[in-house]
């Protein structure tokens, strides 16, 4: 059994296992977690006074007390939850993956193969074993819900309706996937007079533009799954996602939202359980408008600020 103690300069890993493992600095955090987990699970005492079984040996290995190793010691015992993020080919997805990987083990997916440093599973989101396998072991889903490059408008609609349906149906069958975040668009609200203080309680007004319609229909599918109590879904209606540095010199778009703030919103949506509301949907369904907090911003953010503690940082 193992024991980990962090000194000022050294991290001591004592392995009382059957084999003498080879340790590298970068393996220290992994081993530390493993040993702590085993120690806790076996309810073994600390190494001082550890009674060693006859078939086991122990030794002490001193490693530099790197930040990673210390962090591993100090981290919660439970492994990071697994998060599935769809539409890996979309530019926003790798940004989300990088941000969310701090707290999650990220798995990406798309219909076509995408090169990524994260785990990637190619899946067409059909009603089949491949989709079941895609969601197996996953705790939550971020459904970026973007058609693949080259999709025509019908394919886009089919992807966001049928793909969303099959994804959520497979996820709900696991009994483990508890939460999905769906990335919709504020374009479903832009037909309102800009002088109105439109919020999430206003009816969406999608156009017949295929992209907007498909996002709206995907949200429709999510809502029925939430209504059926099959899976908790939060829909984030995003403005026009940009990176602030790339907007220099351009006229300010009231719908701009920085991708870093989008990452923050998704993090919050995954973390915060919506409160019960007068609408009676409780924690199963929520919609939040995600934009910037700029003076020229089109939509108010009170819903997201109150509901998921959304605090955008980037302004124009």
């Amino acid at each position: 059994m193992g024991f980990v103690r962090s000194g000022r300069r050294r991290l001591y890993l004592v392995n009382a296992g059957l084999r003498r493992p080879t340790l590298a600095d970068e393996a220290a955090p992994i081993l530390a977690r493993y040993m702590i987990l085993n120690m806790r699970n076996a309810r073994s005492p600390q190494v001082r006074g550890l009674r060693v079984g006859r078939r086991k040996f122990f030794y002490a290995v001193a490693l530099p007390a790197t930040a990673a190793a210390v962090s591993a010691v100090q981290s919660p015992l439970s492994p990071r939850p697994r998060l599935l993020i769809t539409s890996a080919s979309h530019p926003l997805t790798p940004v989300l993956a990088q941000h969310l990987s701090r707290d999650y083990q990220v798995r990406l997916t798309d219909r076509e193969s995408v090169s990524s440093s994260f785990e990637f599973v190619r899946c067409a989101l059909e009603q089949d074993a491949a989709t079941d396998a895609l969601v197996k072991g996953v705790d939550a889903i971020v459904h970026v819900a973007e058609p693949s490059p080259g999709d025509d408008e019908k394919q886009g609609i089919e992807w966001l309706t049928r793909g969303t349906y099959n994804l959520l149906m497979a996820a709900s069958r696991t009994g483990v996937v508890t939460r999905a975040v769906y990335l919709s668009t504020l374009d479903v609200m832009t037909p309102y007079d800009p002088a109105y203080t439109v919020s999430e309680s206003w009816r969406p007004l999608p156009s017949t533009d295929a992209r907007v319609m498909s996002k709206h229909l995907g949200e429709y599918v999510c809502k029925e799954f939430a209504r059926d109590r099959k899976i908790r879904v939060t829909s984030l209606r995003l403005g026009n996602v940009v990176r602030q540095e790339q907007t220099k010199g351009k006229p300010v778009d009231p719908l701009w939202v920085d991708e870093r703030d989008v990452c923050h919103a998704v993090t919050q949506a995954l973390r915060v359980t919506p409160n019960d509301s007068a609408m009676g949907v409780g924690s199963w369904w929520a919609i939040y408008h995600i934009g910037s907090d700029s003076p020229a911003a089109r939509f108010a953010l009170a819903g997201a600020k109150n509901g998921i503690a959304y605090q955008p940082q980037v302004r124009w």
């Binding site: 309706t161 349906y165 017949t208 319609m213 229909l217 429709y220 599918v221 029925e224 209504r227 059926d228």
Partner: peptide, 21 residues
């Protein structure tokens, strides 16, 4: 409020398409 039965939800989505048009 169609629920998530395949037949019901797909017909409801089609209805919504018509409505938006």
């Amino acid at each position: 409020q169609s629920g998530t039965l395949l037949y019901a939800l797909t017909k409801s989505l089609g209805h919504e398409v018509c409505r938006v048009f």
